[in-house]
Design a protein around this nucleic acid. Structure first.
Lengths: 229, 229
DNA sequence: ATTTTCTTGTCATTTTCTTGTCATATGATG
DNA sequence: CATCATATGACAAGAAAATGACAAGAAAAT
């Protein structure tokens, strides 16, 4: 569950404290002291999540959130608002702006950690109910069906999850270790070679509709689902 | 068409009025005077639908709706917002929050009733009295009859409810836990394996008209009623 | 009230399907 | 050619689902 987190907070004390906690929890932390600085940073590297203080000098947190929400690259990145008072109006406003969650100061490290975890999980693209479609192969999480060119395909639970993950993350190489993390779960003790076997089973199942070459082997790196013909 | 409805409304007058109308229409009504109270009530028993006043003391209606939408148990329960003015902004906000419909005060009993029916039909089709038909199998809630290809089928109460639910929610996988929630009721203490047994009984009953393969097992996920041939 | 008939939930058992691993084959790379 | 990475086939342990039987309880009939 290690993530890259952008912390936008002007008070040095709180910034340090939060940063320390996050680092302890195994996250990589980037810091900004103002909305403007945050914008510069996000231009360089996309964080997995943003912790955003409500009250900021210059551009306010809520305004920054609004900008993020309209930005193509940042749109998907979850935002947690840090608000000083438990004012209902703030909460509502924050959530309306598109924040995924808010947390009221003072907060405990445990609470912060829990919220981060929850938000990250909620945003995990794999868990959505949206149907995915690539090159005539369609996978529907709701009905739990895979159809390739009108032919229904049979695949086991693991192959289904594997395919789902790769279809929602196309054009990107994943190492065996990464696939184990994402498809099997974070702390499973399974041989890396096992991934090979499941890739093979998946390809075998996809053969029925001629989609077996959808998944490419990248020697020395891992596997990739290619959306291109 | 009898449903359990949770009414969240702080004004005693309106509360009484609505409650009276709903009861007349054959619904069971639970009342809360605040969002907080509503949360307590829903922790005990799940309603089939929520009527939610927009303006509430303490936590606002919109925030309550948001909480419901992120709650595993309440996520599926339809919400109708009660709003005082016909303000467009309210309407939009309400619908964005996940409300299924909204109704502007003052409203007539007939209008309320119609909206409830419409929402239930959309979100909880098994609550309505409509006859369902899939692949030559027809189930009529009113006469409580199931007919498959002109042959009358015999099934017990639980099997009937199970089939009704699945027929109104085809092409969707339901886990044993979900089926227990929807068919048996929210917190009943019943083994998950029991679902297997009832699925079997249902299949057995459907065999008479050759509909036994209507219900498919999705290994590792649950069961699905497939409308496709 | 009492008997009879159904319905239901549970369990033990059997059957079917999955899955992780290994040994070996195949193919790429330098 | 030697070496390393990946593909493949087989298999046994184990998980999940189907099945059959049963007893407690509810509903209906008497």
């Amino acid at each position: 569950m290690a993530a890259t987190i952008l912390l936008v907070e002007d008070e040095p004390g709180i910034q340090e404290l939060v940063k320390f906690n996050l680092t302890q929890a195994g996250h990589a932390v980037m810091c900004a002291e103002s909305a403007e600085q945050a914008l510069v940073i996000t231009r360089e590297a996309l964080p997995d999540l943003v912790l955003l203080d409500w009250m900021l000098p210059g551009m306010s947190g809520i305004e920054l959130a609004r900008i993020f929400r309209t930005d193509v690259r940042m749109k998907q990145v979850p935002i947690i608002m840090l608000t000083a008072r438990g004012d209902e109006r703030d909460k509502v406003l924050g959530l309306e702006t598109g924040a995924d969650d808010y947390i009221t100061k003072p907060f405990s490290p445990r609470e912060l950690s829990a919220r981060i975890k929850a938000v990250l999980r909620r945003r995990a693209p794999q868990m959505t109910e949206d149907r995915v479609e690539v090159r005539g192969l369609s996978l529907d999480p709701v009905s739990h069906r895979v159809i390739g060119n009108t032919v229904a395909l049979e695949l086991g639970p693991t192959e289904f999850r594997l395919l789902h993950f790769m279809m929602t993350h196309p054009e990107r190489v994943y190492s065996r270790a990464q696939l184990l993390d994402h498809v099997w779960g974070d702390h499973v003790f399974v041989e890396e070679r096992t991934v090979d076997v499941h890739i093979r089973r998946l390809r075998l199942a996809l053969e029925v509709s001629g989609h077996e070459n959808l998944i490419e082997t990248v020697r020395g790196a891992g596997y990739r689902l290619s959306a291109q013909l």
